[in-house]
Design a binder for these strands. Structure first.
Lengths: 164, 164
DNA sequence: GACGGGGTACTCGGATAGAGCTTGTCCGAGTTAGCGTGG
DNA sequence: CCACGCTAACTCGGACAAGCTCTATCCGAGTACCCCGTC
């Protein structure tokens, strides 16, 4: 089980966009240069965030991406769902309805308790992610390095021409 | 993010093996026929369980698989780890050490708080899975359908010749 | 009748192909800023 | 000097390939059982 690698990229980008603020848009090329990532592929991930309503995109010069709502209203689960898809990791295929097991009494197959247990574990995971917002991460990093945000802002608003 | 499909198969098989008991071995073909699964592939998954020490395997006639230890000592996490691998879903690639971001002060890159948050969520998921055992599932199903176990036992101990 | 040996059928186990999804790349449509021109 | 239109560059957006993991299959090694022959 491996999560989409773009989730890490998207989370970092969201924190950076929170520092830049909603007045300036940052193009995908700028964010890609910031972490040395493939521009086009990062663009694809940001598109997914735009479709999910997490960021808003504008075309043309001075265009790019910016947060579509306050950082405190964007949970980690929102980002993970946007990039990695809404489907659960464990999918019950109801295998117990096939083969010889269909000879068993119906009430045996009423509810799949295995699927239920797996689902509860995933709910716990989701709950944990939904409890943390981009603003939480942002605040924690600021306490760790107070001058980081300002430097990030400066680097992102004067992007190099392009690296890829 | 999609979990290995064999996890569902392995969990069902473990519950069934718990009903059969440690005195009789059930061949992979029998379990496959029970759920109409591809025999060779299910065998591969059971091999993984054997490598993890969850089941023990014996060759030859009257051979097959059986639980290697009491069902109460096999957690769902044990099975998931054996089939799906021990690696975490979210893997921090430390992208913030590449590109322009390396201009940032060192203490900004001290600990990746994003990776930490993602890890905590996964720990929560694992804790939930580690809290449930095969015996728990087995007991809950028995309360739901008291005669299911005996029928399952009978079906598994007289497997049809082969279906695939 | 009892014992021993060989054959046979059955089982797992690992090595080997095929499919689907993730990753990566490319080029086109749309938009906006800036500049040049005319009033 | 100001306003307007055009051009050109820049941006996103979706369509198009490559790599890798998961899925699926096959055949060989090993083993226990069973039958047969012999004592």
């Amino acid at each position: 089980m491996r999560m989409n690698e773009g989730v890490e990229w998207a989370l970092h980008c969201c924190v950076n966009l929170a520092w830049v603020g909603p007045d300036e848009a940052v193009p995908a090329a700028g964010l890609a240069a910031f972490y040395d990532l493939p521009t086009a592929y990062l663009n694809k991930q940001l598109q997914a965030l735009a479709r999910a309503g997490i960021v808003s995109s504008t075309s043309g010069p001075k265009g790019g991406f910016r947060l579509a709502r306050p950082a405190k209203d964007i949970t980690l689960l929102d980002v993970v769902t946007a990039i990695d898809g809404p489907e659960e990791a464990f999918r019950c295929r109801e295998i117990r309805r096939n083969g010889a097991s269909r000879k068993l009494p119906d009430d045996y197959r009423q509810r799949c308790l295995i699927a239920q247990a797996m689902r509860e574990a995933e709910v716990s995971w989701r709950r944990e992610l939904a409890a943390r917002t981009i603003a939480d991460i942002k605040g924690a990093v600021e306490r760790q390095a107070p001058d980081g945000p300002e430097l990030t802002r400066r680097l992102l608003l004067r992007p190099p021409r392009s690296r890829r």
